[in-house]
Structures are given as structure tokens and as C-alpha cells.
Design a protein around this nucleic acid. Structure first.
Lengths: 329, 329
DNA sequence: ATGAAAGCGCTAACAC
DNA sequence: GTGTTAGCGCTTTCAT
């Protein structure tokens, strides 16, 4: 299993200096004489020396590793987020310890324990679910925590997209197109943003004085299809909790013989990559995933970041082919 | 940044025993007297003691961590694979250090260096690309390596799906349906399995005596759409390098006014989750992703696994709605 | 059954 | 500029 790597002692011996000098040269923490420097570098090179991050971590009391807890990595939204986080972490010299909890509370606890024992420098929780249950736990792990894509647990720092505004933009887009009977395909309350998005749609609908019917899916394709099937025929536009639900809704409409967008318009939320691949391509509200990832890493890594700090990023309307004016009767 | 956790010394002091006893009780490596045991447990509980995996790793020379290098985590095939790997790793008490390289060689080198310095117990490389370039490097990192979803680099252990057979099954499915003019939408040779899949299609076509035209995409949606657009009108069935390409092909056919499957049949490869969501749902060749992940972790983790060991898993034909008999003229 | 102590590989005083 | 050394938090002989 484990192989023996050369240690700093080996490098010191081979270059005829002390381990301290080797350490200094390699970390550049202090200047060394040119000769010493050269010999150390040569020896390290010759031995293919790789300093042990674990020994260093023990000494420095920092692993330069971030723990990332994802509640459902198979949901296509998260790989994009993970990718953004990973890139930023690596750029800053941090590693990423990944835990996927599949929305299972036991696995969540286990993940947290693992990360704490591994002495990660910080923990990021990326979830689409409300986390109230672990709020206490998360606050007391003894490691900095930041929430990504959800907000409002205890007073933990968090970043997400302004869901209400995004949903409102979606509904207003439809209303602007001339739709007067809308539906909102929401998700169970367990999904952190469901309430906000519903509120956003309601706000738009109310100030425009148009009709709204609300149906509930599950934030995934199947549930979206099921929920869309129960939308009354008079409805000409539907704003969905997320892109997955929207894809399900489009399928349902199509199999019911209702053309998108000629007869019904559909708007998603997230702008996951495949939103551009559907037929017709999906009009949706884009979440600034990259920015979310970057901010989260920065927040965790930078020393002088204290206090709660909740950030809401601005969503953006992406108009594609799934929305159009309502049919004229 | 780093907070101070209680150490084994604290637990020992609070329970009035030596650190050795605490260690033994907590790890269960040796029996201790019931009283000692109880006091240690109580103290650990009271202090919310979490043993430092980094100190333990330094002593034990094993981090119980696996490094996972993924070349493109945004490709929907990989999150499913990562999920399978993560589940198996965690079940065995291993953590997963994730590196996404975005197909960039420099990032690949950096990832390998990071993982070696972190002293992971093993490295898994999950790539759809042929890895010949790093073959040497991978063989000499001084850490066990296993390849997932690709094969044949040096004599490293690897696991993948029998691509040739899978592609052959796909073509034979079409031929069995009555198709006589087929196309294969391949991927650049850089993709490890492209050659095998092409060979599988060729084999089926040859022994059935039917026509084949080959077009090249890029293993993604856009490239698939582009390539499909150049397929001659006589072709009635196309087997694609992967599901993404197939999705692109379906889009291209639809915008060209050719109905799937009534006028053209399309077969994918992988059976990623969204293959079931397309319209029509995609007929495809399923890769046993779970089994791949499980085997890879097992191979890396189990002591007595030596020698190369290359495994090819059996693919499975999943018939959905994108294939049908060719139009009768 | 338990304790004392060495040591895993590194860094940072502290001396020179 | 460089070496000596203590110590990060564990596990594990080796004694007792």
C-alpha cells in the first residue's frame, strides 16, 4: 500500500546541509547561500523529493485542504459548481476533499466527522436543501463553514442567487410576452429556494394582475413532468423551479400534444449546461455559478473574513427558444 | 483559520490515564479495563475529541485517502462515476481528494504532484482520453495507480467497458431492426475508446454486409450535431460515440426535418441519466458505472492486489424510443 | 492492563 | 547563513 518516499533528511544528507537549510531553500522562507541552494535543489531533484504535506500540516496546523460536502453530485447543477470551486481552490494552493451525501442525513454526519478529523481548514456545504437540522452541528464543528447555494442557517456565511428576483424576472418575461394565465411549477419546501421562487413569481403576477396556478414537482425531471401534466389547458406559460423540472415539463407538454413554445412557454432556473441542448433550447434564469464558487473559496481561505456575511448574487434572464408570445385565439 | 482541537493529551489528562491507554481504548486495538475504558470514553465525549487524522497519518504512514483525478467533471458521465467511487471509498473508510484537470496537461501534472505530496494511499485517474503521454509519469509517482474508464497505459491496472462489443451490439440492434445503411458518429482518436467503438461498428457492419459511413464529432453535443448534419440522407441509422453526441445528432436531425426514429434511428453510448430524458428517450449502450467505481476502489485499497489486472466490463443494450425499423420506401 | 518514551517528517525558534 | 533542537498529535514497542 504505502510506499516510502524520500524525506527531508535524505535530501539534507545528500546535499551536505542541515534539514533546516533544506526546508528554507525549498520553501524559500529565508535566503540561503547560492551554493547551498544549488546543492539542495540538485539533491531534491535527484531524489525526486516530494515534501510530505501531512508532516507539514501537523507542524503548521493547517492542511491547506477544503472539505466540500455536496448533497447530490448527480444533479447536473452541482458538477458545474464543484468544478468552479475546485478551480479556485487549486489556484490558491488548496486541495479539495469531496463528500457526497446523497441527501442522507447519516452520510452528512459522517462526512462532517471525516472532514473535521482530517483537519480541513474549512468546510463548504453545497446543497439545494434547507439545512436547518444541522444548523447547530455546522456551527459547532470547530472549523470555518460556508454555505453555497443556500442561505440563512444560523449565522453562517453563505452565498446564493437572489432567487426571488430571478423568479420574478422569469414571470415578468412571460408577462411581457403577453401571457395572462401562468403556472408555477414549484418544489417541496425542503428545497431551500422553493419559497423564494414562489414568492418572486407571485409578486410579478400580482402587480401585473394576471392569473397563477401553482403545482408542485420535486425539482427533477420526473416530478416536473408529472406536475406539468396537471396544469390546466388555459395556462400559456409556466415558470419552473429549476431547469430539470422545466425539461420534465417540456416533455409532458409535448407528449400531451402541446407545442412549446407555440402553445405553452416554459422557463427554467439555473441555466445548467444542458438547458442549451433541449429542443427547443430552454429559456431560463442563469445562476452565476463561477462567481459563487470563487466567493465561497475566497471567504473560507482569507484570514480576515469574520462575521456572518451573506451574499446574494444577481440572476440573469437567458432567452432561448422555449418562450414566445401566447397563441392568439 | 485553524482552530485548536483537543488532543489525546487532553483526553488522557481528563481521564487520568496515559495517552497510550486513550489511544488503545479509542482505536480498540487492545483491551483496557472497564473503568479505564469508561473514563476515557466519557472524557472524549465531554471534550468532543476528534482524533487528528493528520497526526495518525504521519505515524501510520497512511492517510486513508484516495486521490481522484477527473479529466472533465462537467461531462455528465463523470459525476455518476465520481458518485459511485465516493460511495465505495467512504464505505471503506477512505476520503476522496478530488482534482479536476479540464483536459489540461499542466493541471494534470499539478494534480499528480498535489496528490503525491498529500500522501494519498492511491490515485485513481478517470479519463475518457487516452493517457499515453503521462504513462511514464503515472508509473513512477510512487503511489499505486488505477485507471478508470480507460485502459492500456503501460501496465497499470485499469477498468473500463468492453467498448468494441458495446458498439457492435448497438450496430447489430440497428441491423436487426432492418437498417441497411448505417453511419457511425465517432470521436477524435484522443478519446481512448473511439477506435474500439469504431471497430465494433465495423465488425457488425461487415458481417451483415451493410453500408457504413463514418463521420467525426467531438464526443459532445455541439460536435455531434455538426457531424450528424453531414450524414447522407440515405442513412437510416446512426450509432454514436456517446450519449452526448447522440443528443446532438438528434437535434441536428430534427432541425433538418428528419424524424427520430421514424426516419432515422439513433443509438448512444454510456446511458447517462439524461439519456432517459430526451425526446424521444435515447436507445443506448449502458456502461456499468457503479461496478466500475467499486472495482477501482477495491483494487486500490486491498492489500493483496498486485500485478497489472485489466478488467473489461460487459455493456448492456438499453432500448428506448430513438430506434425503430427504417422507413419502408 | 498500563505507562514511558521513541519517532513519523516537517518547520521555526534559537543559537552561533 | 546555517545548524541544533523542540515539538506538532498520534501509535506502538518495551517495560513494568
Amino acid at each position: 500500500m504505502s510506499v516510502t518516499h524520500p524525506t527531508i533528511v535524505d535530501v539534507a544528507a545528500r546535499s551536505g546541509v542541515s534539514t533546516a537549510t533544506v526546508s528554507r531553500v525549498l520553501s524559500g522562507s529565508r535566503a540561503a547561500s547560492p551554493e547551498a541552494r544549488a546543492r539542495v535543489l540538485a539533491a531534491a531533484e535527484a531524489l525526486d523529493y516530494r515534501p510530505s504535506a501531512v508532516a507539514r500540516a501537523l507542524k503548521l496546523r493547517s492542511t491547506r485542504t477544503i472539505g466540500l460536502v455536496v448533497t447530490d453530485i448527480e444533479n447536473p447543477f452541482f458538477p458545474q459548481l464543484v468544478s468552479a470551486i475546485e478551480a479556485e481552490a487549486v489556484a490558491r494552493g488548496y486541495g479539495l476533499l469531496l463528500c457526497n451525501t446523497a441527501d442522507d442525513e447519516a452520510r452528512e454526519m459522517a462526512a462532517l466527522r471525516l472532514l473535521v478529523e482530517q483537519r480541513v481548514d474549512g468546510i463548504m456545504v453545497a446543497s439545494s436543501r434547507a439545512l436547518r437540522r444541522h444548523a447547530g452541528l455546522l456551527g459547532s464543528v470547530g472549523v470555518p463553514v460556508v454555505l453555497v447555494n443556500s442561505s440563512g442557517v444560523g449565522d453562517l456565511p453563505s452565498i446564493d442567487t437572489a432567487s426571488r428576483r430571478g423568479a420574478r424576472m422569469a414571470a415578468e418575461h412571460l408577462i411581457g410576452l403577453g401571457h395572462r394565465r401562468l403556472a408555477h411549477l414549484t418544489a417541496p419546501r425542503a428545497n431551500a429556494a422553493a419559497g423564494e421562487r414562489l414568492a418572486g413569481v407571485r409578486a410579478a403576477v400580482r402587480s401585473a394582475g394576471v392569473e397563477l396556478v401553482v403545482v408542485e414537482g420535486d425539482g427533477r425531471v420526473e416530478g416536473g413532468a408529472r406536475a406539468a401534466a396537471s396544469v390546466p389547458a388555459e395556462v400559456t406559460g409556466i415558470v419552473c423551479y429549476n431547469d430539470l423540472a422545466a425539461i420534465g415539463a417540456m416533455r409532458a407538454f409535448r407528449s400531451a400534444g402541446r407545442h412549446v413554445p407555440e402553445e405553452v412557454s416554459v422557463v427554467g432556473f439555473d441555466d445548467i449546461e444542458m438547458a442549451a441542448w433541449t429542443d427547443p433550447p430552454l429559456t431560463t434564469i442563469r445562476q452565476p455559478i463561477e462567481a459563487m464558487g470563487r466567493w465561497a473559496v475566497e471567504r473560507l481561505v482569507e484570514e480576515d473574513n469574520d462575521g456572518p456575511g451573506r451574499v446574494h448574487l444577481e440572476p440573469e434572464l437567458i432567452v432561448r427558444g422555449s418562450t414566445a408570445p401566447p397563441p392568439t385565439r
